[in-house]
């Protein structure tokens, strides 16, 4: 009987440890995380419109605001820094950068953007040091974000206030570019 109680408590302790381990490991091994869902939608360094207002949410991303159009682009900073640009006169847009595991690294909205234009450069710490040595015009115009990640994705959300805004939102998202940033030649 005592042996059974001992085995039972041993099982409980082991189950507890397994539970903690599994919960902590899920973000690293989730089979259907945001990155994987976006992977099905297109290559690295290219924006794809993953949801348009009016119900065209074919992205499998849950709980997306149906009043928003969303474009996403995956990047890999180990290849090059990322430069993202688009412009358009919308009542509201916001940008969020996520790491590979889908955690927010940085976000801002049109009000905090320079001249309400979307222009941003994402660099890792090494690339940041390089840019500091060699500042260029681009880096002065753009929001410069230092992120200590390799892979990640960027999401643009654009509000479609009513049906009449649909073409503007569509244009805003399809104009968005997601490119490798090339360092200016050292002078």
């Amino acid at each position: 009987m005592r042996r059974l109680a001992y085995l039972g408590s041993l099982t409980l302790v082991f189950a507890g440890i397994m539970h903690i381990l599994i919960i902590l490991l899920i973000p690293s091994y989730a089979a259907q995380d945001a990155w994987t869902k976006l992977e099905e939608r297109g290559e690295l360094w290219r924006f794809s419109t993953v949801a348009l207002p009016g119900g065209a949410n074919t992205s499998k991303l849950p709980s997306i605001d149906p009043a928003f159009g969303i474009a996403a682009c995956r990047f890999d900073l180990s290849e090059a820094p990322l430069i993202v640009e688009t412009s358009g006169d919308l009542p509201f847009w916001s940008v969020a950068i996520f790491d590979r595991k889908g955690r927010n690294i940085y976000s801002f909205n049109d009000r905090t953007a320079i001249e309400r234009r979307l222009s941003l450069i994402v660099v890792d710490p090494v690339q940041m040091a390089q840019l500091r040595k060699n500042p260029s015009e681009d880096t002065e115009r753009a929001v410069l974000i230092e992120a200590d990640v390799k892979q990640g994705f960027i999401l643009i959300r654009a509000l479609q206030q009513d049906q009449s805004w649909a073409p503007v939102v569509r244009q805003f998202l399809s104009d968005a570019t997601c490119q490798r940033y090339e360092f200016p030649d050292e002078a």
Binding site: I23, L24, I26, P27, A30, Q32, D33, A34, T36, K37, K60, L61, P62, S63, I64, S94, A96, F98, K101, G102, R103, N104, I105, Y106, S107, F108, N109, T112, L155, R157
Partner: peptide, 23 residues
């Protein structure tokens, strides 16, 4: 990244893209 482990696990397994503080 400061979320608790349960919320993180839930967000990752559902593949959500939550709104960030500035959004």
């Amino acid at each position: 990244p400061d979320a608790d482990p349960y919320t993180k696990a839930k967000v990752a397994s559902d593949g959500e893209v939550p709104l960030d503080s500035a959004e």
